[in-house]
């Protein structure tokens, strides 16, 4: 399947579904589709990593299959699992006359297989976007698993045989870089670092999501956010928080974002007391 026909096609179609991609993002998304290589997206919280995968699925009409990673995620949750309880029941229900061979073949069949996101994505025959979200939260062993799936797009189930993808999914892995992923996984992926957008793009994102916001306020808002991000805060405001801030300003009918208005609504974007203190001091809010 042709996911995007060119970088500019990616820009246009992602834009049509509400994702305003910068040139690097568009080029990389185009390449991930055309080369059929997984795309690793790294960057701080709330810059649109997860949203990119969702937008690709919306823009191309492919279904999204999502594997949310967490510490302790294992093969049984990521790939597949045998339904042990049902198998036990089946064994207990088998009458004495039935040969073990037969029961064995029976309990290791499709009926007793619980497919998890990775296997689901590989087996689907319709176009699929596979989102492996927050991959840095998993343990290193899971990476071994991913490696197998991402290099050959196939999964071997000892009792059933090898399942190979009939159609390669568009794979997006996201990471906050809370730990380094292994070189092996990285080598299989294209790499994209998403960062906070420049003020132009951020203003466009805000206006597209909060269309009723006054132009002047939107401009003031994104420049205030840019200055906050310059302050080396513990938690810099994300795009999602900029959008929240915009909604707040609209709800409060604030039509001029001056020092006092910023001070009053700062809680929407800053979550640490020491960050607020620093912002109040450096932006001269009080």
């Amino acid at each position: 399947m042709v996911w995007f026909s060119s970088p500019s096609d990616a820009t246009t179609r992602l834009g049509e579904v509400g994702y305003l991609a910068d040139p690097a993002t568009a080029t990389t998304a185009f390449l991930a589709g055309a080369l059929e290589k997984p795309l690793l997206v790294e960057g701080p919280a709330g810059v649109g990593k997860t949203e990119l995968a969702k937008a690709v699925s919306r823009a191309t009409g492919a279904d999204l299959v999502r594997l949310q990673c967490y510490e302790g995620l294992d093969e049984a949750r990521a790939l597949y699992e045998w339904n042990y309880k049902k198998q036990l029941l089946r064994i207990q229900a088998a009458n004495d006359g039935q040969a073990w061979e037969e029961t064995h073949d029976d309990i290791f069949s499709e009926e007793f297989l619980l497919t998890r996101p990775l296997l689901t994505a590989i087996r689907r025959s319709e176009p699929t976007v596979l989102l492996i979200d927050e991959v840095d939260k998993t343990d290193v062993e899971v990476e071994g698993l991913l490696l197998e799936v991402l290099s050959d797009f196939q999964v071997t189930i000892p009792e059933l045989g090898t399942v190979a993808a009939t159609r390669r999914p568009f794979v997006v892995l996201t990471s906050n870089a809370s730990r380094e992923l292994s070189e092996a996984v990285k080598r299989r992926c294209l790499y994209l670092h998403l960062d906070y957008p420049d003020t132009e793009r951020e203003r466009a994102i805000v206006t597209s999501q909060v269309p009723d916001l006054d132009d002047k306020v939107a401009t003031q808002l994104v420049s205030a956010v840019a200055r906050l991000r310059d302050l080396e805060l513990k938690k810099a405001p994300s795009i999602a928080e900029t959008v929240d801030w915009a909604r707040t300003l609209l709800a409060l009918h604030i039509d001029d974002l001056d020092a006092m208005a910023i001070d009053d609504t700062l809680g929407v974007v800053l979550k640490h007391a020491s960050d607020t203190d620093r912002a109040v001091r450096e932006l001269k809010l009080r």
Binding site: P7, P23, A24, T27, T28, F30, L31, A34, L35, E42, A177, E180, E183, K186, R187, L190, Y191, L192, H193
Partner: peptide, 21 residues
């Protein structure tokens, strides 16, 4: 696939394929 026509795209293409962190 991308071609050599636009410098920015050449840059982004190299970045996507060569960078790891």
């Amino acid at each position: 696939l991308v071609g050599w026509g636009e410098r920015q795209q050449v840059h982004d293409t190299y970045a996507a394929t060569l960078l790891k962190r």
